[in-house]
Design a protein around this nucleic acid. Sequence first.
DNA 1: TTTATTTTCGATAACGTTCTCGCTACTATT
DNA 2: AATAGTAGCGAGAACGTTATCGAAAATAAA
Lengths: 338, 338
Amino acid sequence: MTKPATIKDIARKLGISVATVSRALRDAYDVSKETKKLVEETAAAMHYRPNFNATGLVKRSTHKIGIIIPSITNYYFSTVITGIQEYAFEKGYQVILYVTNDSPDWEEKIVRELSPGSIDGMLACITSNTKSFIHFQELIDGGLPIVFFDRFAESLNASRVLQDDYNGACIATEHLIQCGYKKIAHVTGPAKLSLTQNRLKGYLDTLGKHNLKPFGIVHSGFSKEDGIKDVEAILNEKDGPDAIFAVNDRKAIGAILALKSAGIKIGKTIGVIGFTNDPISEIISPALTTIAEPAYEIGRISCELLLRHIQKSNYPIQEIILPTELIVRNSTQILYEP
Amino acid sequence: MTKPATIKDIARKLGISVATVSRALRDAYDVSKETKKLVEETAAAMHYRPNFNATGLVKRSTHKIGIIIPSITNYYFSTVITGIQEYAFEKGYQVILYVTNDSPDWEEKIVRELSPGSIDGMLACITSNTKSFIHFQELIDGGLPIVFFDRFAESLNASRVLQDDYNGACIATEHLIQCGYKKIAHVTGPAKLSLTQNRLKGYLDTLGKHNLKPFGIVHSGFSKEDGIKDVEAILNEKDGPDAIFAVNDRKAIGAILALKSAGIKIGKTIGVIGFTNDPISEIISPALTTIAEPAYEIGRISCELLLRHIQKSNYPIQEIILPTELIVRNSTQILYEP
DNA sequence: TTTATTTTCGATAACGTTCTCGCTACTATT
DNA sequence: AATAGTAGCGAGAACGTTATCGAAAATAAA
């Protein structure tokens, strides 16, 4: 119940002015070594902790950054957040978490209700169907540094950190082709998202390179249930696929479940490849071949970039793309040696 | 780049005092309806947003709460956080996330570096081997409301919200016995944690009730890998178990993987039951029988309780225990009809 | 010495709010 | 008509810190 010690308390105890104490506590060129040391010692003794509200008020900088994200209950997002959190903590920043539940309305509400000076910058990942971006544009216009990750809007002039969706999709499709699969379907995500488009493009381009035709492209959500539904629909068509490239692991899991309950041999009859490298992909049987995304690094690097923008207001806008990696497991198999 | 509007700007524009504007913007008994309406309108027009640093300074209350948690990359924790976040957002509170990585040193450092007045309260889940609790005690002594969830320290006089670990373990063990399993091993967690102790006690008591002997109790970490190791060790003993009760789903998953690679038929030869109801438990094959924890509700209720403590400084300390539920899947089977 | 320069510090005004007074101008009471 | 009460507002201090300006003391240069 004891009130926390302030700079005034230290000043009073030492018989010096608050200004001197303040200087001594920061990087001070303006204060003698003796008083600096003295102040630091008594500050420690009194358990002094700076009041961020006060410093924030005068310096217009709280050491806080915001994360706005559709959800945290999946491997990719929670790992990105972990990366962000760790880097931020190392640099003395605190992280405020905003979860949109993938609802554009919530997203807009959250952004609109932001108090000025409550955060120094923002890490953002938009919902899968954010239609208007003016709320983000207003933040940017207001001078708040924003770095997008994973999902972003082309129209917004802001830095972003992404995995290499296009090449990842190329690698995935190439792998299926090398295995000997020929009729490769793509179970994809929400149409407007750039990551969906890039993975789709990688798929199409790679098929084209090999003179193969695209197959049953279905746009829907990102969930396991979406994967099940989409694959069931594909299976009902007359001419079925012999492989499925899913836009992410959750949908690939759905695909595996759907194929299993249809009694189809996964790998041998129909190959499945995902995207993410969710830990579940090595637990499910057959284990899921997938494209690994560097989620943790994306978090760390996004945060690093954001802090640069915060420190230099004219820091140049960047697009950082991190490589992906093919992880081969049992859901794809070599059908014949070429 | 335009500076955000302040209360002063509104006052100047309307030719009234800042005090009146301030009153008009809050629940004002002291201001006429006309000026109140006028102020609200121009505030909206100028996109006024209150500055939390300033209000926090004078009112000694930021609308922020902290969550300190070992990790966010698992189903239980991320779901609890989701519950917390949603409730907090509904009530106008922001959530600051602190991740300890299950390291007692990080935990202590984070707590020690908290700035006074930077949060109004704290939701906490301790690491699996926090040895000393004085850093939390100091927070409590300093008057900061804290609510613990899932993991807590008996010695700390603070509210807590828990799942019913004891009865959950009883139900789990009882289920195994009803199935016909007789030699039930318990793969458990870090020894000091109360949840470990309660689940262990539930297991022991239920066995005792049926005159069965406990079997191969192994204390280790919470991870899948720990589960694999523990079960491999148990299998190497002369007289093997016919069922395994794991302290959580991740270890149960590890158990299933270990049993599979040992070529043991799960369910028929050895039954497995977990604790959590992680989504992965219905994806793995065989699907995992488990005790479902109300993670989301624990989050919401913890947050609700914390806000009560924040609003009434003498709000009574509570221990809230939420029920669990048995979810039967294929990793346990009825061995014979009694 | 005297002057110039540096080092070290204190006073004071901000930052954007809320809070406590107290003042004015009404309305109600007698 | 006199008093009391009340509604509505403004002035100014406070919250804990940093920033600006200048003053005093110490040192260096002349």
